[in-house]
Amino acid sequence: MLDEAGYRPQDWDRQTRGQVTMLEAIVQSWNIPAVWLLHEMGIDTGMGFARKLGIPLAEQEDRNLGLALGGLATGVSPLDMAQAYSAFANQGVMHAAHAITKITTRDGHVLVEAAPASSQVMSPATASTMTLMLQQAVARGTGRLAALERPAAGKTGTTELPATEEFAAAVPTSAKDAWLVGYTPDLTAAIWVGYDRTDKDHYLNTAGGSVPAKLFREIMTRSLQGVPVADFVLSAPVQAQVSAQDPNPVQSDQTNKKQSGKSDQGGGHNGKSKKWW
């Protein structure tokens, strides 16, 4: 069991496993490895990387190990998450998100057109490695209900209910927020399910791997109709390593298969953390 200054994160099945690979930790949504890794690399490093991806952080309130599980003081928006994840699919380059691409006159004359700023927020090798792991999360992990008939990568997430008297009667699998953030080589999407104000009469009985994953699959399937299927572009070193280890990596042979509806759970941090499962 990991114990850092009294903080004891738990995995969704309340089990401990010793050493595991990063791949399996992501695929199975185990929380303890993420917290351990943040502790080893340092909170300053973790916060710095999150900020490079445009994730808003409070300097003091978010400076804790719960950050590894998304335990943020004020949270993030779906737009924040979609912008951040798009860098994984784009060789580490992140483009500033925007809602309006251009404004034209009635006869088609362009008055103004968006020119979003872009920045290299991680190396192509790091982005490619993340894509390979997140593909597995969709192919055989907690995001499997989001699988498409084309390459897809993503991660599920769920925010636990506050540990207060108001929610004492709620079942253990109840939640405040449920997420699926994912992408294909062409499109990134962030799905959030929840209430503007969570109270004893308004909370969720679903997890990120259920309703949000199904919504992601439906929205992406419709949005990409008519778009040719393409594989993810991986950096040359990562592609060479993948080819050497597995001549048939998870790419365009992904299929949208029905899966059993067993719910997942995750560990929290002082009643405010996001449990990724």
Rank of each mutant, 00 (worst) to 15 (best):
G108T: 03
A127F: 04
A127K: 01
A96F: 06
S118R: 15
T101E: 14
A115K: 14
E113I: 10
P116C: 11
Q120Y: 09
Q120V: 11
A125M: 09
H98C: 07
V110S: 09
G92E: 05
A125Y: 01
R106P: 06
S128M: 00
A115F: 10
V121A: 02
M122N: 05
D107W: 11
H98W: 08
G108C: 08
R106Y: 10
Q120M: 10
I103W: 05
V112G: 08
T101P: 04
S123T: 15
A115M: 13
A114C: 08
H95I: 13
T129F: 03
A99M: 12
P116D: 01
T101C: 05
V112P: 02
K102Q: 13
H109D: 14
A117W: 07
S118G: 15
S128L: 01
V93H: 04
A127G: 10
G108W: 00
A114F: 01
Q120A: 15
I100V: 15
H109K: 15
T105R: 11
M94W: 02
T105D: 09
V112D: 11
A99H: 09
H109W: 08
A117M: 12
G92V: 10
G108A: 02
A114L: 03
Q120N: 12
T101D: 14
H95G: 01
A99V: 12
T129D: 07
A115T: 13
K102C: 02
K102R: 14
A97F: 08
P124Q: 02
Q120T: 13
T126I: 10
A127H: 03
T129E: 14
S123H: 02
T104K: 05
V121S: 01
A114P: 03
L111H: 00
T104C: 07
T105H: 02
R106F: 12
T101Q: 11
I100T: 03
E113W: 07
G108R: 06
V93W: 01
A115I: 13
R106A: 13
T101G: 14
K102L: 12
S118I: 06
R106E: 13
A127L: 04
I103V: 14
M122P: 00
I103M: 03
A125G: 09
H98D: 04
T105L: 12
T105A: 09
S119P: 01
K102P: 00
I100R: 00
A115L: 14
T126Y: 06
V112Y: 01
S123F: 04
S118C: 08
P124M: 06
A117G: 12
L111F: 00
M122L: 10
A125S: 14
M94L: 15
I100C: 07
A125L: 08
H109F: 12
A125Q: 15
T104Q: 08
K102W: 06
T126Q: 12
V110D: 05
T126M: 09
E113Y: 07
I103E: 07
G108S: 03
M122W: 11
A99D: 10
A96R: 10
M94P: 07
V121D: 03
T129Y: 05
P116R: 09
T104G: 00
V110Q: 01
S128G: 09
V121Y: 05
E113D: 04
G92Q: 03
P116K: 00
I103R: 02
A117N: 12
T101W: 09
T105W: 06
T104E: 11
V110M: 09
V112A: 14
A97W: 00
R106D: 11
H98F: 10
A96M: 13
I103K: 00
Q120C: 00
